[in-house]
Design a protein around this nucleic acid. Structure first.
Lengths: 255, 255
DNA sequence: GGCGCCCCTTGACTTTGGTCAGGGTCAAAA
DNA sequence: TTTTGACCCTGACCAAAGTCAAGGGGCGCC
């Protein structure tokens, strides 16, 4: 579960000759892994040895589906990086239903906010697809922050971007009807600007419904209605006949 | 519009004998103003001279209602602190309606996120109640960030808290029916935990409706329904008969 | 095969929020 | 005084999402 030489040696220095300790269930190791972690907006451009030190105080976790990482109210003394698999952050409504706030896919991180502000997780986190995670402790992280002021600045920018994403989601929830939110979600899965696109849903429909803020029955109906607009969905693969025209439809009046 | 001695001399050092330059339309000046600015979570605990330097490169603005501070797409090379009055951040839907994302009241700040991430404002900002603002330039701010690493850390924490607020709002939008969102909004206006409470709405019903994501007609109906639950509203003052029981109602099933 | 489980879909019905139109109150302007 | 405009409420109607119930298809397992 951990690297042979250190708690977690993800970032061998260029001249390191030791064989990379493979992480369970995750294909990338050593340099490839390092490249992935450094691809996180959070750590983008971080110096090699700073990252090395950070990772040395972290642990890698291999978690099965349905593992509960933490519950709301738990002390947040670390945050997580998703290398593989998926993790959902959700709340429980008083009547026992769960509402999914976010789903994290590789490569992304979550929990920094809770860790740095209140020190308490406000939501529950559960692995929904067998996952490989890195757990980064608060102390190590703060040390890193202080060792290099560029890190703090970069992290600030990264949080700001995230902030924008959240506030645009609020906008969408308020001003778009559900079918447009679904359509935009699908469109976000492809880079294509024109013509046809074939995308595959990153998770099942129950979760997708929760992400766009409707029930799964409504999602079914929405997808049925979208069929008339050239969105054919079978299983978890979706073919969009004309990306451009769908985008136009989404941009039109929420009415 | 600006302080007599400097672009903006909000923070006279203790031994400064110059008279405080009064800001138009804003009661607090000099030390009182400094106290207000330092009350911002963003600047909480900032050293006196650091703040002084920051403010020296800022400008104070007295803006009338309906002033457009910036439009979506404009270059974000500064952010704003609200000392007095109110500013709304909103988007325009394709059919010309506006949806308000946030309303800022004293003392708070906005625009940091846009400034630090993309450098472009994603929303429009308009003064909705005659306001006194401080406009802080990017360069000065970044200098401050770098001069004191504690600032960066504090700002990180502050952004994280904000992040939590946003993500809890997303939760509410998804899992609560409008009447609960309205009720929670009202409850957030009082500190009382039990018994009766008398609150006054910080802005008119049109804006309130937009904040909770419904139309003003719906808000009227919601307020009418809330009357049966002991929420009497006349004008912009609202009396809640039993805070405790209303809170309980809100916590119950969104169903 | 037969069974149960999971995921998804569909239909019938109910509830609710949006839309449109009308009207009321109040205060400032003409 | 009347007029105007800002703000708010209400009713009638409609479209859409939630709810409840039923059922289909795929898949692993005994």
């Amino acid at each position: 579960m951990s690297c042979p030489c250190r708690p977690l040696c993800l970032v061998p220095k260029p001249n390191c000759s030791k064989p990379d300790g493979p992480l369970p269930r995750h294909r990338a190791t050593g340099p490839a892994l390092a490249r992935q972690v450094m691809a996180l907006p959070l750590f983008d451009g971080l110096e090699h040895d700073v990252l090395e030190r950070l990772m040395a105080d972290s642990t890698a976790l291999a978690c099965d589906r349905r593992t509960l990482l933490f519950s709301a109210g738990a002390a947040a003394d670390s945050f997580y990086i998703v290398l593989d698999g998926q993790v959902k952050l959700f709340a429980l409504t008083p009547d026992g239903r769960e509402s999914i706030v976010e789903v994290f896919t590789p490569v992304s991180s979550f929990g920094e906010a809770a860790m740095l502000s209140m020190g308490i997780f406000p939501l529950h986190a559960e692995v929904i697809e067998d996952a490989t995670l890195i757990k980064v402790g608060r102390r190590a992280f703060i040390t890193t922050l202080q060792s290099d002021r560029a890190v703090a600045y970069r992290m600030l920018a990264s949080l700001c971007r995230w902030h924008q994403r959240l506030s645009s989601e609020i906008r969408h929830l308020k001003e778009q009807p559900p079918w447009q939110r679904v359509a935009e979600f699908l469109l976000a899965l492809t880079d294509a600007q024109v013509g046809e696109a074939l995308v595959s849903l990153p998770f099942n429909k129950e979760i997708l419904a929760s992400r766009v803020g409707i029930r799964r029955e409504s999602l079914s109906r929405v997808l049925a209605r979208l069929r008339d607009m050239g969105v054919r969905t079978e299983g978890n693969s979706v073919r969009i006949d004309d990306v451009r025209s769908l985008r136009r439809l989404c941009a039109e009046t929420g009415h």
